[in-house]
């Protein structure tokens, strides 16, 4: 009896989960197929048309389109901000976890980081806009990169705190007795042992930067515009270019898809760790 019901649950569970998976994947395939269709086929709802590369060609190589540059901007901002935030967060996390800073300092740092992490980003963007404009930095890479760093900082610190807690304190103390200063402990012991954690935290920081729209929309200009902002402008033009919008969407999904295909373990670990914390 119980064996039977367990079996039923087993099969039913599969059906439900795969059913939902279909609902997730369906739209993605649809947009993928649209990216290979002519505008007219999209508008007519033609099911099957010979796939063409026109949308991608126009999007990437036509004179009117800056999308290649937008992708480059996204990549540049993403990579630079990820590298910097990883260094800053790992340094801070090591001190918080192992070097016993004053309790109030830890509490303020982590507490405010948590609150900031959850506050609507847009409530800060206006203030940033005024600050960077007054400094003459509006529309520069510096402005976007700095804000992306601080945007990803709380999550990265929390993740690194979690990962560094897994490095036994004994190891740190052994290194201290072997003659290491804090800096040497960090470089010789902590860094080599936290590459896995840094990969996870870095993957998520990059995704966050790559996906950001609220900040980039308001702090970039024509030259520093990132891919998500460009996609949004497609939708605002008088004559919406659906095909190019679809292919731009597909291209913007690529880094995320690569990450979950090749680094699923890290992404899951990071996401779950971040959420549970």
């Amino acid at each position: 009896m119980s064996g039977k019901s367990a079996r039923k649950g087993f099969l039913g569970g599969h059906l439900v989960a795969w059913g939902y998976a279909l609902i997730i994947v369906g739209p993605m395939f649809w947009i993928l197929s649209n990216s290979f269709k002519r505008q007219i086929d999209i508008l007519m709802g033609t099911g099957f048309a010979t796939p063409i590369l026109d949308n991608y060609r126009t999007l990437l190589f036509s004179r009117q389109s800056d999308f290649l540059m937008n992708l480059w901007n996204s990549a540049l901002v993403g990579v630079v901000s990820t590298v910097i935030v990883l260094v800053i967060a790992t340094l801070a996390a090591f001190t918080v976890v192992r070097l016993e800073p004053p309790k109030w300092a830890t509490f303020l740092l982590l507490g405010w980081a948590l609150v900031f992490h959850m506050l609507p980003t847009l409530t800060f963007v206006g203030s940033w806009y005024v600050m960077f404009s007054n400094l003459g930095l509006h529309g520069t890479y510096t402005a976007v990169i700095l804000t992306h760093i601080v945007h990803a900082l709380p999550q990265t610190v929390f993740l690194m705190v979690g990962f560094l807690l897994n490095i036994p304190n004994d190891l740190i103390q052994a290194a201290r007795m072997d003659g290491c200063s804090y800096g040497q402990v960090f470089r010789r012991i902590v860094l080599p042992l936290s590459f896995g954690g840094m990969a996870a935290a870095g993957a998520l920081a990059f995704i966050q930067s790559w996906s950001d729209f609220a900040i980039a929309l308001n702090l970039t200009d024509q030259d520093t515009m990132t891919a998500p902002v460009a996609i949004a402008t497609f939708a605002q033009e008088h004559q919406i270019r659906y095909g190019e919008m679809a292919s731009a969407s597909v291209l913007s999904m690529v880094p995320a898809l690569i990450l979950i295909l090749f680094g699923q373990r890290y992404v899951v670990r990071g996401l779950m760790a971040g959420a549970v914390k």
Binding site: D170, L171, A174, R176, M177, D178, G179, S181, I189
Partner: peptide, 29 residues
């Protein structure tokens, strides 16, 4: 500072550096 005390300790968990070989562990200090 402990790094200046010239003492050596065997830890309960041994605290061997997992990313170093036996030789590197021993020669680290």
């Amino acid at each position: 500072d402990p790094s200046d005390r010239d003492m050596a300790m065997v830890f309960q968990s041994y605290a061997l550096y997992p990313h170093m070989t036996v030789r590197d562990n021993m020669s680290f200090a």
